[in-house]
Computed example of a mutant assay.
Amino acid sequence: MLSKKFKDLLYLLDVLEEVEKVHEFYLDIHGYERYTNYPDFRLKWREKMNSPNFSHIFGVEFAPGYGFLVDEEDYNKKSVLMDGQNQTRLSIESITIEPFNYYINYNFVINGDPQDIDVMADGRPFIVELRITGCLNTAPFWKESLYLSYLLFKGNNILSSFMHLFITFEGLIRYHTGDTTTSSIHTVYKNYTREKLPNYLNAYRKVRNQVMHGNENVASQLTLEDLEILIDTIESLEENKTSVTLTENTIAINEGLLLH
C-alpha cells in the first residue's frame, strides 16, 4: 500500500521521530453545578506544550496512568498520581494537536461530582505522558519537502505531492554532493551516482519545469504510480546511490519525454 510505503520511508530516512514527553499543567474545572453528579460531564481544555525539536507535529498519543500530582514537588516515574476521589473519575476521552503551534486540545470526561475533581486540581498540576511524532526541525530541507509531499499525498493532491517529491529528489543529490550552485541537475546526478540521468527522471524534470512556468495541464496524467516511482527512487538514491529500473513508462513519463 502506497500510504504505508510513504510513511515507512519517512521513518527510514529519519524525517519523522517519536519522543516521549511529560506534559504538566494546571487544570481549571468550571461550568458545573455544585453537589451534582453527572453521568458524563465533558470539559474541553487547550494547553500549550513546549516542543522545540519539531517544526511540525504529525501526531500525539497519551499513555495511561495520568492524573494530579499528589503531595510531591516534582514529578518522576514513581510519583503518585490520582484521577479522582469519592467515586468520581476524570478521564481523557481524546486529544488533538495543533501541528504548527504546539497546542494540545484535551477532551476530558468526568463521571461523578466535578467538585471532587476541582478540589484535587486546586494547587496540584495535572500530569500526562505523551508520545509525540513530528518532523524534526534539524532535518535538511529535502527531508522537510518529503514530509510535505506526504501530507499533500494524504490530502489527495497528486500534483503538489509530485512537485515536492521532485524537490526532494533534487535536494537529496545536491545535499549529498554539496553542489548548491547553478550546476544542472544532469551534472549533479552524474556526480552523485556516476551515471547519466535516467530518461524517466528527465521526463519528470520537464513536467516539473512546465508546472513551475504555469502550465499545469502537462501534469494532468500524473497518477499514484508516478508518486510511487519517485518514492522508490528517493529511497534507492539515499541507500544505494542508484535510481530504479522501470519495466514500462507511465503516461506522464511518455508525455514528459515529448516536452522540450
Rank of each mutant, 00 (worst) to 15 (best):
Q87A: 08
H213L: 09
Y66V: 12
L146K: 00
Q221N: 10
K77A: 15
Y175F: 13
T245Q: 15
L27P: 00
I117S: 07
F62N: 15
V119N: 08
L197P: 01
N156H: 13
E144Q: 15
L201G: 01
F6L: 01
G171S: 07
L201V: 04
G84M: 06
R131C: 09
F41N: 00
D122G: 12
V70S: 12
N191D: 14
N215A: 04
V244P: 04
L159K: 06
H176F: 08
Q115I: 12
E24I: 11
D116K: 08
N191L: 11
K206D: 06
V128L: 06
G214H: 03
I127L: 05
L81A: 05
L222P: 02
N111I: 04
H23I: 04
K21V: 11
H23Y: 08
K190V: 11
Y106A: 03
K48A: 12
I110G: 07
F25I: 15
R174E: 04
L90Q: 00
P39A: 15
L159Y: 00
W45M: 02
F166K: 02
S220M: 06
L151Q: 10
I234S: 03
K206T: 03
L43I: 02
E129S: 13
L69F: 04
K48R: 12
N37D: 11
T187F: 04
P99G: 01
E33A: 08
T182E: 14
D8H: 04
T245G: 03
Q221G: 05
E239Y: 09
E144V: 15
Y150H: 09
N249Q: 13
